[in-house]
Design a protein around this nucleic acid. Sequence first.
DNA 1: CATGAATGAGTATTCATTCAT
DNA 2: TATGAATGAATACTCATTCAT
Lengths: 214, 214, 214, 214
Amino acid sequence: MPSLEKPTKPAVSLKERQREERARLILEAAQTILLERGYHETSIDDIASQVGIAKGTVYLHFPSKEDLMIALVEGQLQNFVQVIEEVAASTCSARERLEAILRRTYDPSEARRMQIFLEVFGSADMRSRFAEKHERTQPIIDHARTLLRAIIEQGKAQGEFDQHISTKVMIVMYLNLLSPRNYHHLTTDQTVAFEELLPQIIQIFFHGISRKQA
Amino acid sequence: MPSLEKPTKPAVSLKERQREERARLILEAAQTILLERGYHETSIDDIASQVGIAKGTVYLHFPSKEDLMIALVEGQLQNFVQVIEEVAASTCSARERLEAILRRTYDPSEARRMQIFLEVFGSADMRSRFAEKHERTQPIIDHARTLLRAIIEQGKAQGEFDQHISTKVMIVMYLNLLSPRNYHHLTTDQTVAFEELLPQIIQIFFHGISRKQA
Amino acid sequence: MPSLEKPTKPAVSLKERQREERARLILEAAQTILLERGYHETSIDDIASQVGIAKGTVYLHFPSKEDLMIALVEGQLQNFVQVIEEVAASTCSARERLEAILRRTYDPSEARRMQIFLEVFGSADMRSRFAEKHERTQPIIDHARTLLRAIIEQGKAQGEFDQHISTKVMIVMYLNLLSPRNYHHLTTDQTVAFEELLPQIIQIFFHGISRKQA
Amino acid sequence: MPSLEKPTKPAVSLKERQREERARLILEAAQTILLERGYHETSIDDIASQVGIAKGTVYLHFPSKEDLMIALVEGQLQNFVQVIEEVAASTCSARERLEAILRRTYDPSEARRMQIFLEVFGSADMRSRFAEKHERTQPIIDHARTLLRAIIEQGKAQGEFDQHISTKVMIVMYLNLLSPRNYHHLTTDQTVAFEELLPQIIQIFFHGISRKQA
DNA sequence: CATGAATGAGTATTCATTCAT
DNA sequence: TATGAATGAATACTCATTCAT
């Protein structure tokens, strides 16, 4: 019977799990409000009351508003890297792999998880605020870029992509496609459904970078 | 008597001109600092002292910090529309016209004039702040989109662009290209010079949307 | 059966002793940290972790931070009174007895035990905080003063001290000598060692109050 | 007539005078409340409403609560040094000069001006808070000590004071006498009037350090 | 009893905005 | 008109205290 032993370990892990759960709830609330209102318009009180806890409790999990923000971005960045890693391991063609990443990024159930991270780099406020504390995130970003670079260069080598276009530019443009935010710019009048948006974007991008049939 | 000639009109107009000049100086200073530091990190005092006037004077021209910001964006938006209008009137091919707009947007001497406008829509802070006061900018944006739509549809009609891709998507993606900011995302290590960036972006985009040679 | 011997009393007393021991440990830790950092810079957490217990446990012994402080001061005050009482009982001359008290107060091994008490009265923060809860300490202080008064008046009666100087003033000045803190004022550059400081202070004070040889 | 010239200088100086007046009022209020309640128990709001101004206005004059405190202490320190300097210049005997300083320090109209400065060095909180920002005050203190040293050493040379007692110890003890605060320790029961206190203190101290008539 | 997570009152500080000069 | 001193609402953060486990 497993009840023979009553180890203290699970207890510790329980507290730890509760703690992480709490942190996760805070991050989630923070994400929702931050996306809606932005960093400066969101107070710690707002976040706390969204979670249904007291202001002080937020500080038990994150030493400062900024650190909360950074944790949020870092988590999403890691999510993103994980998606790339999973896809990178497959044996499909380069295009298929890049498409897969795009699809997972646009997948509504995933999308929310990455918005802040994508948002952060789009705001002067945020970027300058981040610049200093980037040390930890930079290596993760570098890793992501390395993986993408490998995929794209395979695609070039296999004749899928145009070798005259710099890999760097492809990466940048590809990453641009990843920000669903960009597609709200001037489409608040929801006349293009997301379901039709993605295939067309894919079409433009991959046709755009495909090897020209001279 | 000096009242022989109608002195009021010119006087008013002079004052008015001076007034506008003042407002322009403030907007210019605001633009510079806002781009550098972001909305919240920029105080009215910062802007005033950049212009060399007192804080209170800013309020003689703009009723609030937010209105200053909105005036700034509106001005840039109008700039942008003007560029589109100028180009739209030409008789070049659709692609040539769209390329011309891109080039003027990327042109360093013009670029600064549009960055805030482009930046604003990339920050949750800004967007939510704007949402309410959009009434005035929305018609301008609609006008721009109408002009672009016309060009693109000409391009489709003339067989330049792929008719299977929705015009809306093309517009959105095209507007995305316009934000130089996007190309800083992960290119802080200046390995892709801007001069080579633009032609490649153009290449990808226009090849991407070009009619397929079945 | 273990109930043969009356186990309750010793058990309670053991618990009580443990309880008091705990309280003593807390007071000791509090003293160390409070002296180093001051009342406001010391958190209950600091004290608890210095003792190696949890924050809540401190509250099982002292109803508030302030009460902890008061208990500390009261204990030290009692210490001080005890020193006076021990010395007062001796048969030496008045001057020898007052000197003995001074020496024991300055004795490094004792000194720490009284610093907080002396410190408290030197800080406006502390005094105002104390003012209300003085009721309990006041009688102890009165007792100390009575003892000192007796010694001094003996000294006067025996011709040791100048009868023209008020006993009250002598007491006040004498108590002033007791605060080693005072001698840090401007001697941070440690050029006067404590060992030479005390004899000279004694010399000045007792010569100062000695009967004048007309 | 002096009204012939309407110089702008006086206007500037008026503003400047108003500004200084305001700062003085703040310092005065701060002093009163700080002495009563101590640093931590005094909020900027308390000070502001004591002066009858808004919180923000305090910050127009002092960049932080701490700086306000430092300004206060520094001002009082300078007051003290000025007293010493004035007295030091006289040609009286050493004792007379030291007595003069004591009297001026105890003079009720002056006393309030120095209490904070004397208080600060009596609180662990304050001292540690000050330690860092002492750079500016240290030279002033050193100057004061140099002046006092000179007087005392003259006294020794002239046979007024006992040469066997270290000048440093005399200075320290003398400075101790200067803190009226010390004489409240245990004399809240106003049985010794200040008028009789001072002469007796003087008597003890100067008899204490006087050359012994072997 | 002991714990330490949760609380929320309290505070320093900032800055857009106003208005007397 | 221009100024900039004054204002006070807003907000991040701390920490004594409580209480469920």
